[in-house]
Nucleic acid binder design. Structure first.
Lengths: 149, 149
DNA sequence: CGCAATTAAGTTGCGTACAATTCATTATAT
DNA sequence: ATATAATGAATTGTACGCAACTTAATTGCG
């Protein structure tokens, strides 16, 4: 079947399926989010702010599992779009808290149908949906536990 | 529980779990691959070449589900490292076929323990492993079918 | 044949990701 | 109190991803 001895089929690898499926899902969001002026990481970051208003930048990094080198510029663009505001803390001048704006909250509502249509397009039953999400959370937790902390 | 009415928990979303877990897995590969001088996308691309020697660039794009804007520079770097060679087709001067080199084939062998250790770190049983891979393939196929072709 | 439409690969521009570094601020340890 | 370490956020540099475009080569149609 394979064209070379010892060949490893790319498509059989879990890591590749994860990589490709993650890009496929973000691609499914792309057009709908672009209509709202958002990229996929910007959308997730906005959700994290709406989920809990006034989070610090490092709290957002924790929630999103991204580092400040990624989150800082995203927040800068969200602020530039008027969707969030960054406020430097008085008590500790190092930390910056991020708050939703009125426009950001409204956009959070407009995103719902986009999310619904993508979830529909995955073609998963709600049981499969929950199962897949659970397996992913488990993998992520296990990887986190087994890596140098 | 949530800090704002109508808030959507980022961590509960399948799309976020996919995104975060995909990055977690590629992060688990990072150190091992870096020792071999590879990034994660370079590793997958090399695998695709080793799986079937002499694939064209567009065949590689198909297999990896990436476009030429991503694959071309990756192939350029792999060629720069002496791991693959690009040969322009005589019959059709537009197409370029990619072949493994001796060094590329050797590197393909050295990657096996890295892959094994990451698979181990996911902590999944082989049944869960196969189940997760199947669910991901299903999502990817469904999304592909429901998008404009 | 001539030439417009296609196709394959590569290039450009922008927005992530992430390591490494920097800057400013706060904690600590004498 | 002061030097030093640690911390939060931002910046820099490299490598993806992807849309849009360019270039070169082939196809198809009159």
């Amino acid at each position: 079947m394979s064209a070379h001895p010892n060949a490893v089929a790319v498509d059989d690898q879990l890591c590749f399926q994860l990589y490709a499926t993650s890009r496929a899902v973000s691609g499914a969001y792309r057009a709908g989010l672009a209509d709202l002026g958002l990229t996929y990481p910007q959308y997730l970051t906005l959700l994290a702010v709406l989920e809990q208003d006034g989070r610090t930048v490092s709290e957002l990094c924790d929630v999103l599992d991204l580092d400040s080198g990624t989150v800082s510029p995203i927040l800068g663009r969200l602020q530039g779009e008027g969707l969030v505001t960054k406020v430097r803390e008085g008590a500790d001048g190092r930390t910056v808290r991020v708050f939703r704006t009125e426009a950001g909250a409204e956009l959070g509502q407009q995103v719902a149908p986009v999310r619904a249509s993508v979830e529909d397009a995955t073609g998963l039953s709600s049981a499969e949906f929950a199962q897949l999400r659970g397996l992913l959370q488990q993998v992520r937790r296990n990887l986190k536990d087994s890596s140098p902390e």
